[in-house]
């Protein structure tokens, strides 16, 4: 009797959904025979991974902000651009570190620039939340309009400050060039990008799953009213997430800037298209889905760019449509939506 009662009262835990995780490896393996040469395939895959990590860093902030507070920030693009541009502030004073023939100094310069980019984007995010977003919580139409307005203004301000022309952002000397592993040419910076991306992803998972703040954020995504009723200030939590998300955008922006070694005022907007596709594929509000989505999008872009350069741009739309046909709310839909 009691035994049967026990079984009936057990909470029903849905089995973890591993299927989407297999997509990226399957895609990579499927591309192998198409590409032909394993060395080229390895280079493309690594390039895809590096690009995926950078896009993941940018997209994760957006998806968190949306998941927690139902705000879709079209001005995310501006934080990406701002982060990348603010790194150039250090080009003058720290150019001796950048050019130095020492790995420690180079890495130091990179770290300082990355930190500055995140900090500037975070500060801008704080101000943006207060001035632009706060008055329109809960009204989607107004949110979209106001954040697009913020994007216009921010883009114009960035252009006013740094000029409309392309700005160079040279990589530190030690991270340039390639290393040969067997026949595979590996760009050093791509390894760095993958490493930073994995660290960010791990840190994010740790914070979200193993800390009290993370618990509150996850609870807020599920049911904000309940969290508020339990006495937590969800607004304050949200400001924190907004600032963190903006910092991530800045971080992703500066990493992308180093990847391309050049910055334009429109770079954030160009990336936002990819970021949006990633967020849609992953399921609005899901960090795990965002990670898988970013890898899928970047790998597809790289393979398609090699196999059929003209179709490369359409490939991501095809990918998005395919995923949405399979799961109409993205890979990992967030429960309440």
């Amino acid at each position: 009797m009691s035994a049967s009662l026990d079984t009936t009262l057990k909470p029903v835990v849905p089995p973890p959904d591993w299927l989407p995780l297999a997509l990226a490896p399957v895609l990579a393996l499927a591309a192998l025979p198409l590409v032909g040469s394993p060395a080229t395939w390895a280079t493309l895959t690594l390039a895809g991974l590096a690009m995926g990590m950078m896009i993941f860093i940018m997209a994760s902030g957006l998806t968190l902000i949306f998941g927690l507070m139902d705000v879709l920030n079209f001005a995310h693009a501006a934080f990406i651009t701002l982060g990348a541009y603010s790194a150039t502030l250090l080009l003058g004073p720290r150019s001796d570190w950048l050019g130095a023939d020492s790995l420690v100094l180079n890495a130091g310069a990179l770290l300082v620039m990355v930190a500055l980019a995140s900090a500037v984007a975070a500060a801008a995010g704080f101000a943006f939340e207060r001035v632009i977003v706060r008055p329109v919580y809960g009204r989607h139409l107004h949110q979209i309009l106001v954040t697009v307005g913020g994007l216009i203004v921010a883009q114009q301000l960035i252009t006013a400050a740094w000029g409309p022309v392309q700005v160079a952002l040279p990589l530190p000397a030690s991270f340039r060039g390639i290393v040969l592993v067997g026949e595979v040419a590996v760009e050093r910076y791509r390894l760095v990008a993958v490493a930073i991306g994995l660290v960010v992803f791990a840190a994010m998972l740790l914070v979200l799953n193993r800390t009290r703040i993370g618990l509150l954020i996850r609870a807020g995504v599920e049911n904000p009213e309940m969290v508020e009723a339990l006495g937590y200030r969800i607004r304050r939590l949200f400001v924190g997430v907004f600032v963190a998300g903006s910092a991530l955008a800045g971080l992703g922006g500066v990493m992308w800037g180093f990847y391309r070694e050049a910055l334009t005022p429109g770079m954030g907007l160009e990336l936002t298209v990819l970021v949006f596709i990633v967020v849609i594929i992953g399921g609005l509000g899901s960090v795990g889905g965002c990670f898988v989505g970013a890898l899928l999008v970047a790998l597809t872009a790289n393979y398609a760019g090699f196999l059929a350069p003209k179709l490369a741009l359409g490939s991501n739309i095809v990918l998005m449509v395919a995923i949405l046909l399979w799961r109409s709310r993205g890979l990992y839909p967030v429960a309440k939506r």
């Binding site: 879709l72 949006f276 849609i280 741009l313 991501n316 739309i317 109409s328």
Partner: peptide, 20 residues
Amino acid sequence: FSLRVQRIFFAMITLAVASV
């Protein structure tokens, strides 16, 4: 594809499709 779901979805998808 997108009008069934949410306003936001539509905005994002149209942005992506138009830019491509």
